[in-house]
């Protein structure tokens, strides 16, 4: 029994790591190709033969081979630890993502709350990286990143609250099931739930969640922390070699993770109508991955469409628009939940 526990734990950890790495590599490749298409380029073409599919792998190998440079002014211990902290915060999200009714590494009671809590660890890692680099651009980038992540964590949390009120549970599996059994005017016809209910009922929450996720990921239009025209590369400036790769992977893994959380909360996760639970364990991952792919495409699309905001515009958007709207959304949702 004890051996079983450790073996299961090992397998789960390997699976989580594998899913995260593959997700990150595929979305890096997606970004390369989609951005190329949007700019009328071909993009990566040669690596791997067809479509240049091996480009992210080749990039990864290149980064690993590069020399890791640690400047003199760096606070070595903090500098070396920072990428691990960032990657850990992202990786821990993957533990609770349900890919099917039973296909989840850890089905926690407080799944959503855990996700929001553990992802805030990454903020500390970013601050560590910015401060320890001993470089004014890095410090500026780190401070901007921290201010941004603190500001946008609030709308992210508040947007989730609406879904939690409707579902009556914090567990991610429970939220998917609540969407599958949602009642429209007292009836529960499966075919009506082809469109996931929370996408409609929590449309405001969904929009806020997506906006706040973009900001949490520091992606354009919210990429002031690494604004290359002002701050070189922000808190990543002094990183090279393997540690830079970890930040890079962490960014894309975070994108996939937040897309997975958004599809679980608002798009019905692994749920597909007319399919029994046993079958969902096999089809569920495909369904969820399709939804994740759609959202990741949306993130990439936004990056190559919108210009970068200014720092004060960013803060105003968070504090003056997103948070009040999210609070109003909570009040309305709670009132409607009590009334109906």
């Amino acid at each position: 029994m004890i051996v079983n526990f450790w073996v299961t734990l090992g397998i789960k950890m390997a699976l989580v790591l594998g899913v995260m790495l593959v997700g990150a590599l595929v979305s890096i490749f997606g970004e390369l190709k989609i951005s190329a298409h949007m700019q009328s380029r071909i993009g990566p073409y040669f690596a791997g033969g067809r479509w240049g599919w091996a480009q992210p792998l080749a990039d990864g190998l290149k980064f690993i081979q590069k020399e890791e440079i640690i400047p003199d002014t760096v606070d070595v211990r903090v500098f070396k630890l920072a990428p691990y902290v960032v990657l850990m915060g992202t990786m821990a999200i993957y533990v609770v993502i349900p890919f099917g009714p039973d296909m989840v590494a850890g089905n926690l009671d407080l799944g959503v709350f855990y996700v929001l809590a553990i992802s805030s660890i990454s903020t500390v890692g970013v601050l560590m990286a910015g401060w320890s680099s001993g470089n004014k651009y890095s410090l500026m980038g780190g401070l901007r990143a921290a201010a941004q992540l603190i500001a946008y964590e609030l709308p992210l949390v508040l947007a989730v609250v609406g879904v939690v009120i409707l579902a009556g549970t914090l567990s991610l599996n429970g939220i998917v099931e609540a969407q599958a059994q949602w009642q429209w005017f007292g009836v529960t016809p499966e075919w009506l739930n082809v469109i996931p209910p929370y996408l409609i009922l929590q449309a405001v929450g969904f929009a806020i969640f997506l906006t706040a996720s973009l900001a949490e990921l520091s992606r354009t239009p919210f990429d002031m922390p690494i604004a290359e025209s002002e701050l070189v590369m922000g808190y990543l400036t002094e990183y090279s070699g393997l540690r830079f790769t970890m930040f890079f992977l962490g960014e894309y893994a975070g994108m996939v993770a937040l897309a997975a959380i958004a599809s679980t909360l608002f798009l019905g996760g692994y749920w597909l109508p007319f399919v029994s639970d046993d079958l969902l364990n096999f089809i569920g991952p495909v369904v969820l991955i399709t939804k994740i792919a759609l959202l990741v495409f949306l993130f990439i699309w936004m990056r190559w469409t919108f210009p970068r905001l200014r720092e004060d515009q960013l803060q105003q958007l968070a504090w003056r628009i997103l948070i009040p709207v999210a609070l109003a959304n909570i009040v309305v949702t709670a009132v409607l939940k009590v009334v109906f």
Binding site: V124, L127, W131, L143, A146, L149
Partner: peptide, 8 residues
Amino acid sequence: TLFLFVIM
């Protein structure tokens, strides 16, 4: 995060 932010 607030501590680190202020210190930095």
